[in-house]
Lab assay of single mutants.
Amino acid sequence: TELRLDINGREIKVDGADKETLKELLKLAEKNNDEKAIRIIRHLLER
């Protein structure tokens, strides 16, 4: 399955993203107070 998050109005594919990319996405999600995106990205970073 493909995991996509809508961050800042942009749909971004997050599964398969490297750790650096995920960290950047996490910063974006935190800036937007997007709890769902934050939770998902943190979960991916823990893998």
Rank of each mutant, 00 (worst) to 15 (best):
I41R: 00
K19F: 07
I12E: 05
E2D: 13
E2R: 05
L22Q: 00
H43P: 04
E24I: 14
E20T: 08
A37D: 01
L3T: 12
I40W: 08
I12G: 01
E11S: 07
E30H: 11
K36M: 11
E2V: 06
N33R: 10
N8D: 10
N8Y: 04
A37P: 01
E2G: 07
K13N: 12
D15H: 07
I41P: 00
I12C: 03
L26I: 04
R39D: 06
D34H: 04
I38M: 13
I40D: 02
L25A: 03
K19P: 07
R10N: 11
R10V: 15
D34N: 06
E30M: 14
D34F: 04
G9Y: 03
L44Y: 14
A37K: 01
G16K: 13
L45T: 01
I40H: 03
I38S: 07
N33Y: 07
K27Q: 09
N8A: 11
K23L: 11
K13Y: 15
G16N: 09
L45D: 00
A17P: 03
E2F: 12
E20Y: 11
L5P: 06
L25Y: 09
L45S: 01
K13M: 13
E11W: 14
I7V: 06
E2S: 09
L5V: 13
R47G: 13
T1R: 05
G9K: 01
L25H: 02
I41T: 00
L22G: 00
I7C: 06
T21V: 07
L28K: 03
K27P: 02
L26C: 02
E46M: 15
E2C: 15
D18G: 04
E24K: 13
K36Y: 12
R4G: 11
L44V: 07
E2N: 07
R4V: 15
H43D: 10
G16I: 15
K31C: 05
I12Y: 15
K13F: 14
D6L: 15
E35A: 11
E20G: 08
V14M: 04
K36C: 05
E24C: 10
E46W: 15
L28G: 02
T1Y: 13
K23P: 01
T21Y: 09
D34S: 06
N33K: 09
G9T: 01
E46Y: 15
L5A: 03
I41F: 03
E20I: 06
E20M: 06
D18W: 02
T21C: 07
L44D: 00
A17L: 11
I38L: 11
K19R: 12
R42V: 08
N33C: 07
L28F: 08
L22V: 02
L44M: 09
E46R: 15
A37I: 06
K31D: 13
E30P: 00
L3P: 09
A17R: 11
N32Y: 15
L3R: 05
R47H: 11
E2W: 13
D6A: 12
T21D: 03
I41S: 00
H43M: 15
K23W: 13
H43L: 15
D15T: 06
I7H: 03
E11M: 06
V14E: 01
R42G: 03
L3N: 10
D6V: 15
E30Q: 12
N32M: 13
T21Q: 12
A17S: 12
K19T: 12
N32S: 14
R47A: 11
